[in-house]
Structure formats: C-alpha cells, structure tokens
Amino acid sequence: MNQLRTSKIEKNWHLLAGGDREGLYECFDLFYDDLFRLGVALYRDVDLVQGCINELFLELWKIRERLKEVQNIQQYVITIFKRLLYKASNGAKVVLFDEAVHMELTQSSYEEMLIALQTDEGLKAKLQVAMKQLSGRQMQLVQMRFYEGRGFKEMAEVTGLTERTIYNTLHNALQVLRKEMD
C-alpha cells in the first residue's frame, strides 16, 4: 500500500473513530474495491460480498468509540470482513487462496472481476441447461461422481450396476454435456 493511501486511511479512520460521518464515507470509498475483490475471490457471490461490506461499515460505525485503539487498520478491517463473510455464508465452501487468486486480487480491476463473474454465471446457466438433456440415470451418476466425489466401486455398490456400466454411462453423459456446451 502506498504512503499517500495509508495516510488517507489513517486520517479518515481517526475521523470515523471520532464520530465524523465523512470519515466513515471516506473509509468506505478507500476500502471498497479491495474488500470487494477479496470477497468475490473467496466466495464468488457478489450479493453476499456487497451485503457484508455494507454490514462491515455499519458495524464500524456502531463501535466507533473503540476504533482509536486499532494499530493495524487494514488488517483489522479485513479480519472483521472475513468473519462477516463466513457468518453470512453459513460456512459455504471458500475458494482456496492460491497464487492464481493472489494474481487476480492484485491485478484485476473491479470491472474485470464483474466480467469474470458474469462469464462464470453464464457457464453455470449453460451447464444447467445441458444437464437437463441427461437421462435420470446419467444425472444420478454425474451427481455421484462429480458432485459427491464417489469412486466407481462405491457407485457400483450403491446403484447395483457394474463398474463398466457406470463408466460407459458417464462417458455417454459427458459426450452429451460437451455437445450441449459447445
């Protein structure tokens, strides 16, 4: 973080801690893009992230008298934000924070993140339509294999089918999905 931004954050943080609404609004503006990118990278849910950012700043306003004691402002804000996200998501699975996510967070603009999300949502919608083309048995086996992570042996025990039949049925299902996704 550059020195000018750090000093702006500190100045407005002290205004916020002193009960100045303008300090709250400025802190919101200074933190919003970073929090948005972090939240979307972790949960891929724009509404959840935006709601938690708003809730974060409402919470900061409520506890403003205690904010004077904060030493590392940015870490404090991120920690509260992550807790709010986790709580609001009811423990939904978090995307693992790896090098790709780090690059996405540091290099993507707000607009690029929205475009990526819309593309992701478009693919999900296309997949849902494609899944409707599968037979009931194909759907069941795709669900067991790819959503539940079951092996062929376990699937055979549950369904009463042979492993070879399961393999062939999944192969045919994947061909249908590939055709529909093109």
Rank of each mutant, 00 (worst) to 15 (best):
Q74W: 11
A130T: 14
E22L: 09
V40Y: 00
Q50L: 15
W13M: 06
Y25W: 08
L24M: 13
L117C: 01
L56R: 11
E163D: 01
D47C: 02
W13T: 00
K68R: 15
L4P: 02
Y43V: 10
I166R: 02
L38F: 02
T162L: 00
L42P: 01
K11Y: 11
F57G: 13
L35D: 03
F57Y: 03
T6H: 04
L38Q: 00
Q107W: 00
Y110L: 04
Y86W: 13
V49C: 01
L30G: 11
F28K: 08
S135V: 03
L105E: 06
V49W: 04
Y43T: 13
L123V: 14
L127V: 14
M113E: 05
L84N: 06
R37T: 03
M155P: 09
S135N: 08
E180S: 15
Q175G: 09
L134N: 10
G151H: 05
N172T: 11
Q143D: 12
T119R: 06
C52Q: 10
V49K: 03
M1A: 12
T159G: 06
N172G: 04
L15H: 10
A125G: 05
N12Y: 15
R164M: 07
L35H: 00
F31H: 07
D33T: 14
D98S: 02
G19Y: 07
F28V: 11
E104G: 04
A92I: 08
I78W: 02
A130K: 14
N12Q: 08
L96M: 12
V129Y: 11
D45P: 01
